[in-house]
Amino acid sequence: MSTSNLTLSQFSLRRLSGKRALLLAFSTLLILFLTLPLVALVLRALPLGIEAWTSRATLDALQLSLTTATIATLIAFGIGTPVAYVLARENFRAKPIVDTLIDVPMVLPPSVAGLALLMAFGRRGLLGPPLAALGLELPFTIAAVILAETFVAAPFYVRSAKAGFGAVDRKLEQMSELLGVSPFRTWLRVTLPLSAPALFGGLLMTWARALGEFGATIMFAGNFPGRTQTMPLAIYSGLESNLDSALVLSLLLVIVSFGILFVVRAISPKGITLG
C-alpha cells in the first residue's frame, strides 16, 4: 500500500518536472525568436560612425516623424478625450456601433486605411472637389502624413482613455457635486486626475503607433524625402540606397518602442492600455 503510494508520487513528480522542462524549452525558443532580430539589428547599428546618425536623410526623417507624430497625438487627445468620456459614461443605442467603428483602424491593414483616405480626401475622392475649391490639396503633403497617423493611431488613445474614465467610480463624482462643485469642475478635480495614468499611457501608445506608421502614410502621403518621408518610410527607402541611415533609424525606433512600453507598463499596473 505504502510502496504503491510512493511510486505514484514519484511518478507524478517526474511528470511535473518533465512538463516544466517542456515549458521552459518552448519559452526559450519564443524569446530567442523575438529577440534575435533585434539583437542582430543592434549589433549592426551600434558600431556605425557619427555620420550615419547625422546624415541629411536621417535627420530629416527624424524631425518629420517627431513633428507629425506629436501633432497626430495632440489631435487624438483633443478629439478623443470627449469621445472617450461619452463612451465610458453614456448609454445610447448606437454605442456598440460607435465603439466598433473607433476600433476598426486598429485591425484594418494600414494600406487599406491609406487607400480609404485617398478615396475620401484625394483629388478625385469624395471630398476632393470641395477641398480643391477651397484651394486645399491634401494628398502627398505633411498634412496627409498627420491625417494618416491620426487615423491609424487615435483609437489607441480613445480605448485607453475610455477604460480610464470607466474606472473612475461614479459615486466619487456624485459626492463632489453634493459638496457643491459643478459637474465641469468635478470633471477637472476628480475624474481627470484619477484617470490621468490611463490618459497618459494612451497618449504614449498613440505617439508610438504614429511614429511607426508606414502603410497608410506611403499610400496617402507618398514617400518624398524631406516632405513626407517619415522614419519608417526612410528605413524602407534606405534598404536600397542608404542602409546605414536605415539601421540608425531602426535602432532609434526600437529604443523608443521599448522605452514607451516600459513606461506604460509602469504607470498602469492593471494593463488597461491595450484594452
Partner: peptide
C-alpha cells in the same frame, strides 16, 4: 445635488483617493 447643501457619508468609496485627508475635508 450641487445646490442642495446636503452632506453624505457612505459605507465605502467615499473619500477622493488622490487627495490627502485635509484636502478631502477642504474639497
Amino acid at each position: 445635488p450641487q445646490a442642495r447643501k446636503i452632506g453624505m457619508v457612505r459605507q465605502d468609496l467615499t473619500l477622493f483617493p488622490h487627495l490627502s485627508a485635509a484636502d478631502n475635508i477642504a474639497y
